[in-house]
């Protein structure tokens, strides 16, 4: 792996290596001294063309715990506002000797361009691009699912190390059309053997979804009651989808959205006992998820955040230090 751009690029072996390495990383985080010397002297740039404090600090924490030097580069503004061009930014980072660039961008495909346009030779980690991909989010989701539904239940390794997600059912609920989280998860969960059902109002699934390796449904109640998912992943609904701006509102009102697609205590009760509730954050409490659901025993939302650091450590480690068995790369 030279870059991490899309979960669709990951083989099953790649995905398992990332998850298993993340489990090793997570184990080191319970030590008194959390910092590892692995990436000492390497430079990781967090290049954020779009605000995301959560994702940025997660990557920052991951890089710092591997002893990398971290530079935060906020390049907000679109071409419309005539900020520095993507190309010039890339050339600048190249000149500074960045070893890895973690990029968050409002434009789908910007990380792919950084990796392939020949502007810089650093490893590129996609930290979310437009409505395309957010691979580390999907990896942390898979890691969390594996820990809860394979590791702890299976009686084997508590983290489920080495195991895939074969046979597990995951419902992804909400704005699939605009969601890089949904696209990343569909590809990765499928690679790991899980079954996926997307649940959305018809206005929020893309034309062309029929070729995706998953089921789609417009009915959350039926999906929960009849399909009995092992995990339910709620997607954030952006405020602009509710107003009459570009493209108009995608549904009649927030209340109607909540009525049909919100996860509340009643719907929680339809799930099997072992099922977990996930959300990539930040949550709109009272819209896509009620406080009861968000704060219930089933919810693993805070743990997703913690696992995010371990997964991002694993990604940085595998891209920059390469073969984990190589000499000097002991964890």
């Amino acid at each position: 792996m030279k870059h991490l751009l899309s979960t669709a690029d990951l083989s099953k072996d790649d995905a398992l290596l990332l998850l298993d390495t993340a489990a090793q990383m997570a184990a080191t985080q319970s030590r008194a001294i959390k910092k590892l010397p692995t990436l000492r002297g390497r430079t990781v740039v967090n290049l954020f063309f779009e605000d995301s404090t959560r994702t940025r600090i997660s990557f920052e924490a991951a890089a710092k715990r591997l002893s990398a030097d971290v530079i935060n580069f906020s390049a907000k503004g679109s071409s419309v506002s005539k900020g520095e061009s993507l190309k010039d930014t890339a050339l600048t980072l190249h000149a500074m000797g960045a070893d890895a660039v973690v990029v968050r961008h409002w434009a789908s495909g910007a990380p792919y361009q950084l990796a392939h346009a020949g502007w810089l030779d650093a490893a590129v980690l996609n930290a979310g691009d437009g409505t395309h991909q957010h691979p580390t989010q999907a990896l942390l989701d898979a890691f969390t699912i594996r820990r809860h539904l394979v590791g702890r239940r299976g009686g084997g390794d508590p983290d489920g190390v080495g195991a895939d997600l074969a046979g597990l059912r995951v419902a992804i609920v909400g704005d699939v059309l605009h969601s890089r989280v949904a696209r990343s998860n569909v590809a990765l969960l499928r690679t790991l053997g899980a079954e996926v059902t997307l649940v959305s109002p018809p206005t929020l699934v893309p034309v062309g979804v029929e070729t995706w390796p998953c089921r789609t449904s417009y009915d959350l109640d039926a999906t929960l009651a009849d399909w009995q998912p092992d995990a339910v992943m709620m997607l954030r609904v952006q405020r602009e989808r509710m107003s009459g701006g570009t493209g108009g509102a995608f549904f009649p009102s927030p209340l109607e959205y909540t009525r049909y697609y919100g996860l509340d205590a009643r719907r929680l009760a339809l799930l099997p006992d072992h099922a977990i509730v996930m959300h990539p954050g930040p949550m709109n409490r009272g819209l896509e998820i009620s406080a009861e659901a968000a704060d219930s025993d089933r919810a693993v939302i805070v743990e997703q955040v913690a696992n995010g650091v371990a997964v991002r450590m694993a990604a940085l480690y595998l891209l920059l230090a390469g073969d984990p068995s190589a000499e000097g790369n002991d964890l």
């Binding site: 495909g109 034309v207 570009t246």
Partner: peptide, 21 residues
């Protein structure tokens, strides 16, 4: 076609660019 970037279909759905139907 507000904000449209490419043909709306299988490819746009996958690569996350706004569709021009």
């Amino acid at each position: 076609t507000e904000g449209a970037q490419m043909n709306e279909g299988v490819v746009s759905a996958e690569i996350g660019l706004a569709g021009w139907p």
